[in-house]
């Protein structure tokens, strides 16, 4: 494929103009790739297939039976090949650890509650709920400044 790069000063910032004479699967792949570069993504598996998922759609990352899973906005559960402590370091600001086994995306949280026995329960906008260890509450509060 012949690639030519032209600087067009009249274009808006952050705009890429692709000049093609026909849409092909290769061109579509390139477009997907460029789109993927812009938002933060993670590779996850579902039924032995790899998917590239935007982190903005991930509600939570949690450990179950020594494996790490993510739950997406559309309630899909996918296997992630990274450990929780690795994710903790690399995930964007919106993600925060709430227990030894879970990191959540604060953008999807509806509210926190405490029940009568003193368990912290987190309710999400899509109906998902989980519980938090009290030790991590202080850090959650600090992150929300």
């Amino acid at each position: 494929m012949k690639i030519e790069v032209k600087i067009i000063h009249t274009l808006d910032d952050n705009t890429l103009l692709l000049g093609i004479n026909k849409r092909t699967t290769l061109i579509n792949k390139i477009i997907d790739f460029i789109r993927g570069q812009d938002e933060e993504t993670i590779i996850a598996n579902h039924n032995r297939r790899h998917y590239m998922i935007s982190l903005g759609t991930c509600i939570t990352f949690y450990t179950a039976k020594k494996k790490v899973y993510t739950l997406t906005q559309d309630q899909k559960e996918l296997l992630v090949s990274k450990r929780l402590y690795e994710l903790e370091e690399t995930l964007p600001e919106a993600f925060i650890r709430i227990s030894n086994t879970e990191i959540i995306n604060l953008n999807f949280v509806k509210e926190f509650q405490i029940n009568k026995t003193g368990i912290i329960i987190i309710y999400f906008k899509n109906g998902y709920q989980t519980s938090s260890s009290r030790r991590y509450l202080k850090k959650v509060k600090e992150r929300l400044q």
């Binding site: 604060l106 949280v109 509210e111 926190f112 509650q113 405490i114 003193g118 912290i120 009290r134 509450l137 202080k138 959650v140 509060k141 929300l144 400044q145």
Partner: peptide
């Protein structure tokens, strides 16, 4: 001891919810 711990946790939850709403 139970009541004090509950009170502390409740206040923590309240202040987190307030901050969530502000965001």
């Amino acid at each position: 001891v139970f009541s004090i711990n509950m009170l502390i946790a409740k206040n923590e939850v309240k202040s987190i919810n307030r901050k969530l709403k502000n965001q």
